[in-house]
Design a protein around this nucleic acid. Structure first.
Lengths: 184, 184
DNA sequence: ACAAAAAAAGGACAAATGTCCTAAACGATT
DNA sequence: AATCGTTTAGGACATTTGTCCTTTTTTTGT
């Protein structure tokens, strides 16, 4: 659930190193927003260091966290591919260092570079696997079951998530999360 | 929620027409299984005619329907891209006519054809949009809200879904579906 | 048309979850 | 250390959902 992609990071590192002055390295501080749901974006980001969360803000005011993203994850590529406004918000959970690639550069690469296409296809495929498995699991199993998995992964990855974010990831209220934590 | 992809169908139609004897046209009868969760697959399918459903069968015996697929939708491509066993089951809801493309042919195209890469990237992107929006919506809104949307789409597309499938799509029990239908 | 069998709907109760509000814990400031 | 303010946890009740089983409806065969 903390997604990474070393292959992609290597690819972008190389791109940055090469003759591509349009690709820049940027910093975002903790809690800042990289992408804002519903707004247009004119670049994609690739995380070099740090952790971000992608989340929907629904009309009823509730959040739903889709993924926690880390090294080598790309942000905003779906919007670029489909030519749409930002699907969800992306916020920095820690301070972030990211590569920023302007839309024209990214689109040109997409149109010409089979390596990038391959990496992206694999990444999108993996996200579909994750997202759909999780949707199924969350609908069909109890909260405690899902919470168990979340705590496991969290421990394994040594990352700490606020309770609010845990609840948003599980799609439940804070109250329910507290109850589930009691019930271990 | 009944997904189609005319661009892809056109692409595969052309492929079938051209010098590609390995690409075959096959028929599946209603209720037959095209892909079986957990098993290996050695080809991808593209629907020429008919409707299929993709669904998880969870360990607790419950089904969760991911998508209803129709004309131009590709099946089994994620497994091919990620080299994994079938993620979910795919069953024919109506009798089906599909193109079958052997794994080596598909992989070769993937490695060489930027057009195919583009079509696939767009399709996967759209599935991510769908799947994640739906996951968020189903977690954060009431069943009745979700049911409303389902009935709307069902009407718009003139397709009829069994109550069992509706429940599996919404991730709820039949009993809950009946109640929600009463409550309109 | 009727009886038997099968499928679908619904009642009753239990379990899970959300809402709203109060109580406890924590932090900063003096 | 005491106080105020803010954040976090939890109690009480209502609502939603699931489970299990009975009732109703539909289908099938004769």
């Amino acid at each position: 659930m903390l997604r990474t992609n070393t292959e992609f990071l290597t690819y972008i590192d190389a791109l940055y190193q090469s003759n591509r002055p349009e690709v820049t390295l940027q910093n975002f501080e903790k809690d800042s927003l990289l992408l804002r749901q519903g707004e247009k974006s004119h670049r994609v980001f690739v995380i070099k260091e740090g952790i971000a969360k992608c989340f929907f803000l629904e009309e009823n005011g509730k959040d739903y966290i889709l993924e926690f993203m880390s090294k080598g994850q790309i942000l905003g590529e779906i919007e670029m591919i489909k030519q749409i406004d930002c699907l969800c918000n992306v916020a920095a959970l820690t301070s972030l260092q990211v590569y920023a690639i302007p839309a024209p550069v990214f689109k040109q690469l997409l149109a010409k570079d089979l390596i990038l296409n391959k990496i992206l296809l694999e990444e999108l495929a993996e996200r579909i696997i994750n997202t759909s498995s999780r949707a199924s699991f969350q609908q069909l199993y109890t909260v405690e079951h899902g919470l168990g998995k979340l705590l496991e992964l969290q421990e394994k990855q040594g990352m700490e998530i606020s309770k609010e974010d845990m609840a948003a990831y599980l799609g439940i209220t804070l109250r329910s999360l507290n109850r589930a934590l009691k019930g271990l």
